[in-house]
Simulated assay, not measured.
Amino acid sequence: MLFLVLMKKTYARNLQYRSSHAINTVASAIFGLIYVSIWKGIGDPGQAGAAGYTLQNVIHYVAFNQVCLWITLFITNGLGIDRSVRTGQISLDLMRPVHLFYHLMCKEWGQVGYQLLYKSLPIYLLYIWMLNLPVPHSATTWLWTVIALLLAAYMNICVNYLIGVTSLWTTESNWLFWVHYSLSTVLSGFLIPLEWLPDWLQRISHLSFYPYLQYVPTKLYLEMESASLLIGSAIWSFGLTLLCLVVTAWVRRKVEVQGG
């Protein structure tokens, strides 16, 4: 019940700004079209590229990655914990009769749901029309894709929670978010398939959770990989959850606020 209440409140709060958020949606759609235009300019429609990708495969790959961004990457920076530390709100959050991670995680799902409906979905429909983005006919494909996206969103929530709690030890944690964002653009396969990265960078990527944020959901949607990849998503989700719980235990023993 608490999960639904917190999620609905965050969703309702975002509804107040949906007109201004439309600008972000338009800008994101345009960026995706720019990426596609670049690939169209340098690609050869009649030739298969590395790892068996055709120009059409790459266009669909880049397009669906852009659709996923608002679900798997663009969420609240640090889940807003750094702001709570500056105002002193964190002390009240820790006093609530609910676990801090669970509380913030539930709220963030409302943000993810809002962005799915008002950002990802419009971009998805636009790309179906403009780029002939394929729509899977198999219910199984949809099921694996949805599960992959849910796990990707959850992993990113966990990572941002870990980024946020560092503000209890430092006066500035925002830089960690941008490091995370920068790494994700390369290691998640956002702009190019992971198969096209140098071997040493591929190894680093596969040792991290980043491929499960973008690469795995997109490959499952395009029916270019099997559902066995979801095992890795589940393992990373479990591991990040344990890490969040351990870090929260440390946080309860060290509460240093700058506003109270």
Rank of each mutant, 00 (worst) to 15 (best):
V26K: 00
Y154T: 13
V216K: 10
A12F: 09
Y124N: 04
K119D: 04
E256C: 03
Y215E: 12
S20W: 04
Y161P: 01
L121H: 03
W129F: 11
Y154E: 11
Q16C: 11
N24D: 12
V246Y: 12
G88H: 13
L2R: 11
L4M: 14
F209P: 08
L213V: 09
G110C: 09
V67I: 05
P193G: 07
G164N: 02
V36T: 07
G46A: 13
T140R: 06
N160L: 04
Y127V: 02
L69F: 03
L55V: 12
A63C: 06
Q115L: 14
A48M: 14
A148Q: 02
Y17S: 15
L69T: 11
S237L: 05
T171H: 11
V179E: 00
R83F: 14
T54R: 00
V36G: 09
W144K: 01
C158R: 01
I231V: 13
L168A: 10
K254I: 12
L126D: 08
S208C: 11
I38E: 08
A12P: 00
G88E: 11
A148R: 03
F177D: 06
L73I: 06
G52I: 04
L183V: 13
G164L: 04
C244W: 03
C106R: 01
G78L: 04
V186S: 04
T171M: 11
N65A: 07
R86I: 02
F31N: 15
Y210L: 14
T145S: 06
Q202N: 02
A152M: 00
W175G: 10
V98C: 04
Y161C: 01
S20A: 14
T140Q: 10
Y124Q: 02
R86W: 09
S228A: 13
L15C: 12
E108M: 03
K107N: 08
H137I: 03
G259P: 03
V98W: 10
D93V: 05
V255D: 05
W39H: 07
I38P: 07
V112G: 06
S37G: 15
I71V: 09
L116I: 13
Y17L: 14
T10P: 00
L116V: 13
K40C: 11
Y161S: 01
L162D: 03
G46D: 12
V135S: 04
S167M: 07
N174W: 12
W129S: 12
I90S: 01
I38S: 09
W178Y: 14
